[in-house]
């Protein structure tokens, strides 16, 4: 049963809630309680910050041998995205034809199903990305 493991990340997966270091100002996503740059200096100074979900692709791949949870979408596009606020994250690019995605393509986050614990289990939701309109 993975319910609690997923549930406790909902704020970040649903709403892209990250953290900003109060000492140096660097934004982290997923949230961290310690800034790797400031370390001790950052303790107690990591502030919650909701990210815009907008960014641009710095690399991508079209996955043909995918994970079972994504088998209905094969081939699917994965990318590493640099968000406006600075952090880079990994996410799926959806609703695109593979040749629409390039390094530098601007994207924005959407809310999609990430998977489910079988036919009877809970459904997991979170961010994916689409090209910015």
């Amino acid at each position: 049963m993975e319910v609690a493991r997923f549930w406790r990340e909902n704020q970040s997966r649903y709403n892209m809630q990250g953290k900003k270091c109060g000492a140096c100002g660097i934004v982290y996503f997923p949230p961290r309680d310690l800034c790797p740059k400031c370390r001790r200096e950052s303790i107690g100074k990591m502030e919650k910050l909701k990210l815009s979900g907008k960014g641009k692709i710095i690399s991508y791949t079209v996955v043909h041998d995918g994970l079972p949870a994504f088998s209905m979408q094969v081939p699917y596009t994965m990318a590493i995205i640099e968000l406006e606020e600075g952090p880079k994250i990994t996410g799926q690019i959806v609703d695109v034809k593979p040749d629409e995605v390039k390094i530098g393509t601007e994207v924005e986050a959407v809310f999609r199903k990430l998977g489910q614990e079988g036919e009877c289990g809970v459904i997991h939701y979170g961010y994916k990305f689409v090209p910015k309109e």
């Binding site: 990340e9 996955v63 041998d65 994970l67 994965m78 990430l114």
Partner: peptide, 10 residues
């Protein structure tokens, strides 16, 4: 697992 594989990254 939580921030790469969950989102479909092999």
């Amino acid at each position: 697992q939580e921030w790469e594989a969950v989102f479909g990254a092999t």
